[in-house]
Nucleic acid binder design. Structure first.
Lengths: 156, 156
DNA sequence: CCTCTGAGTTTGGATTACAGACTCAGATGC
DNA sequence: GCATCTGAGTCTGTAATCCAAACTCAGAGG
């Protein structure tokens, strides 16, 4: 049983990529993290076509990463806003890992565009690989992939 | 200067999503990590259309994440294989973060399909957010986004 | 009544994805 | 020598997406 014998699609990476494997989905989640909540604000900041944004938001709501909430501003008719659910907020590690990579490999001459700071201590936040025994996992660390009960062999 | 005043595209997440913001690109990198190296093997395992795979591989080579190497098997004509470059291998944190999320939120009744183990100690590997002072950053931790020299304001 | 705004939906054309057939070159079999 | 096989794509025609711009719709303001 080698890696290739397992079904490519019943893999947590494949399942997540089904949702986030789209430029706009990632950027919508990023903007939601950064406090952009309304349709027009997202559309304006991202520059995405309006129908595509509508479709992505509907998908993200459908997948439970985003909630569409009514918002009643004083003396105005009902609006709504989009906010991340708990599941959506748990993507933070993914976004930071993506940002770390971009900072290292796609920064311009002026260096990285933004930094995430831990308010309590002022230090920069990064994503790291760690094993449950607390060892840092560098690019050189030896790891192995072990199939669990949820693994599925591919159909012949 | 709020988040929305900065150019959405000159952001490390946007730049990385330009490359990985595609279902197949992510899965190709995942399979390369897992030792699948040849065109037909990738095509067969992923089930992607051949022209799309060719295009994604060319893009990944172009972006410096993947190298196309000649490989001379004894008594056979020259073949080649695709391998991750150092930059490509540094995506491991991203992939593990994506996998962690999928494990938590998209596992079936049987639980997660795979587990990454640290060979030295046998414990599971996960992606975590940590600040440079060593504090764990949970979903509740307060962080702030600070623009650096590489930040670009958007054109009006 | 006219206009404005937020949040989409519709439309028509340009891209991209997809599955399957086709190509090409070098090895292999007879 | 000729037909066959194999790896690694490329080509083709159709289906699905993307895109930008225009349009819709409902409620608030003037």
């Amino acid at each position: 049983m080698t890696w290739s014998d397992y079904d490519s699609r019943s893999c947590s990476i494949a399942r997540t990529a089904e949702i986030l494997g789209d430029r706009w989905a990632v950027l919508v989640v990023r903007d939601l993290f950064n406090g952009v909540r309304r349709f027009d604000a997202l559309q304006d900041h991202l520059g995405v076509a309006r129908d595509v944004l509508a479709k992505r938001l509907a998908m993200l709501v459908d997948e439970g990463l985003v909630a569409k909430r009514p918002i009643a501003l004083a003396g105005q008719r009902a609006r709504h806003e989009y906010v991340l659910t708990d599941a959506g907020r748990e993507l933070r590690t993914v976004l930071v890992a993506i940002m770390d990579w971009g900072d290292r490999h796609r920064s311009g001459a002026d260096g990285p565009p933004m930094q995430i700071r831990h308010r309590d201590c002022g230090e920069t936040v990064h994503a790291h690989l760690v094993c449950d025994a607390g060892h840092q996992i560098g690019t050189d660390a030896r790891t192995e992939l072990v199939p669990l009960a949820g693994a599925r062999l591919r159909q012949a």
